[in-house]
């Protein structure tokens, strides 16, 4: 059955208001939407990060479901323990019914410090969904670069200066790394396309075994945008093909959204303060390099999904 908001709105809100995420936080939208997909008992594990901090400031918790935060780099290992405990106790008849397990981590806790823990848990084949809410930097500690930070983005540890134009590297392709574990399901999503995203979470939760969703999440503080545009800005990441929506199901790639007109990356760059320096004429070659990288990644993806390559609309 197709998802519709009227039906979803009748379900209990699993994340209580009163959390202390910034007004207009894109990550908490991604968390909230993921929870809209949940049916039945679920346990959530969290890596240290913005969402962990802002939803559980003692003595308050926003979680209406069981929740565990252990440390920064080990959300996947921790949920492995929870899930294994469930299997053990169920096998012994000490617990009944079914249960789902979701681990959340930001890009710092997933692409960087938590990658080993994630890889281990994926390889072992635990029955859990890992959702990386990817805002492209260590926002919780004050906008430091991560391996998910876009090319040339200015962060506090990759600032744009007189001679260095922000981050020197392109982000690693974590979704591909996860897919290389041959897990049954890995996908990329964006909260602006809630139907696609919530549908993916539902799908992932229904699959037995390790599943993964990499969801782009805006951070107006780190991206230097307006809080009101938190949804627009991730939509544009998809329209420029910086953040394609696709899924890998049992090794088969499927494109979930193809922009009618593939927008130039400049359209996304120019509305974010973190790329402000790039608009300088002297950095035209860098903008071209950025565009070339997007085009190359997009073409490579289309080759895997069997879709046609689109030219950038100019």
């Amino acid at each position: 059955m197709a998802l519709n908001l009227k039906e979803l709105s009748k379900k209990p809100e699993l994340l209580s208001p009163g959390h202390r995420a910034c007004a207009g936080c894109g990550s908490v939208i991604a968390i909230r939407q993921a929870l809209m997909a949940v049916e039945g008992p679920v346990v959530v594990g969290f890596a240290t990060g913005c969402m962990e901090v802002s939803t559980t400031i003692y003595p308050y918790t926003s979680w209406r479901i069981p929740y565990i935060h252990d440390a920064f780099e080990n959300a996947a290992a921790t949920i492995s323990g929870v899930e294994t405990a469930f299997r053990s106790l169920k096998k012994q008849g000490k617990i009944k019914g079914d249960m789902k397990f979701i681990a959340f981590g930001g890009d710092g806790g997933t692409y960087d410090i938590g990658l080993q823990s994630l890889s281990g848990a994926l390889e072992r084949g635990h029955d859990f969904l890992y959702i990386c809410y990817n805002n492209g930097a260590y926002m919780n500690t004050g906008i430091q670069r991560s391996s998910a930070t876009p090319f040339c983005a200015a962060t506090t540890t990759s600032p744009a200066g007189e001679v260095v134009p922000g981050k020197a590297q392109f982000p690693k392709d974590l979704t591909a790394i996860v897919a290389a574990h041959h897990v049954p399901y890995a996908a990329q999503a964006s909260p602006h396309n809630w139907r696609d995203y919530i549908g993916k979470v539902k799908k992932a939760l229904a699959i037995e075994g390790p599943t993964f969703i990499n969801v782009i999440a805006s951070c107006f503080r780190g991206w230097r945008t307006e809080p009101t545009t938190s949804i627009d800005i991730v939509k544009m990441a998809v329209e420029t093909c910086f953040w394609p929506l696709y899924e890998v199901e049992n090794g088969e790639y499927k494109l979930n959204y193809k922009p009618k007109e593939k927008l130039p990356i400049e359209e996304w760059i120019k509305v974010q303060g973190r790329f402000k320096h790039l608009l300088d004429e002297k950095y035209k070659p860098l903008r071209e390099e950025f565009q070339a990288n997007v085009d190359q990644e997009w073409a490579a993806l289309l080759e895997k999904t069997g879709d046609q390559v689109q030219k950038v609309a100019v």
Binding site: S9, A21, A23, G24, V28, I29, I231
Partner: peptide
């Protein structure tokens, strides 16, 4: 982001001003 849109019987019913942070999304 704040679960502050009140929905009653599938209809938009207003805002939870106790929690709405006024982001404007």
């Amino acid at each position: 982001p704040d679960g502050s849109i009140l929905v009653e019987d599938e209809k938009m019913a207003g805002f939870d001003y106790q929690h709405c942070k006024g982001c404007g999304i």
